[in-house]
Nucleic acid binder design. Structure first.
Lengths: 124, 124
DNA sequence: CCGTATCCCATCGGATACTG
DNA sequence: CAGTATCCGATGGGATACGG
């Protein structure tokens, strides 16, 4: 199982790794990355796909992802103005692992809901 | 790439999936799950492994993971009291995908740090 | 040893209004 | 269309102290 050895979550470089995990751990990053997928999309297009994300949070999330080199932002001189977002190669590699997480969540969501209900009943 | 189709991050069942993602997205869950691995561990043992986690947060994190059926909690009648924690089968399946995330973070942390520095310089 | 209770502040993120 | 600015309530999580 751990043929690679455990990640350095507790050794040196731990803070750095946790920084990265907290980037993907905020409320919207995973959703945005999954909806972006391997296709370039515009701001409002992405916004609809990520509903009910607010304009403010989509902007902030994209800014943070751009800063980390996970998405690119391309401004086209047109009227009305048009801005395209896309995953970088690094973003695509992250998409792979994040899809694993999303699929796990999707597969396990019903049983986890049951577990929660059972636990809450049992401990009430 | 998306042979499974995109996860239902925006369809029905979206709230449920996001609930699950937010569980693993909090500050300590990924660390605790990785450090627990496939071996039963005691509270303070886990605490040292997850340093600098506080007692309060380890307790809260384990409680939430137990509620979701991801870890088991076993109290042994001994003195001093002894409590063992272990991943359930569901927890082990989560470990797989979470290790993927941790390894990605570890591999990419240095370049992301560079990207951040470059971005901050460029936009200053 | 294994927790819970309290306090308290920093950050996150929603609502809303405004700009190029 | 694609954002930024401001306000503000909710939540997360650290420090500390106490209990079984």
């Amino acid at each position: 199982m751990d043929a690679h050895g455990a990640p350095e979550l507790c050794g040196r470089g731990r803070e750095l790794v946790r920084d990265v995990l907290e980037r993907v751990g905020d409320k919207w990053s995973v959703v945005v990355i999954c909806q972006l997928g391997d296709t370039t999309k515009r701001f409002n297009e992405l916004r609809r796909l990520c509903e009910p994300i607010t304009q403010r949070m989509l902007s902030a999330t994209l800014h943070a992802l751009e800063r980390d080199g996970i998405v690119t932002r391309t401004v086209h001189d047109a009227r009305p103005i048009r801005v395209d977002y896309a995953l970088t190669p690094r973003g695509l590699s992250l998409l792979d692992v994040v899809l694993g997480l999303a699929w796990w969540a999707e597969r396990n969501a019903p049983e986890i809901q049951q577990a929660r209900d059972a636990f809450d009943t049992r401990t009430r």
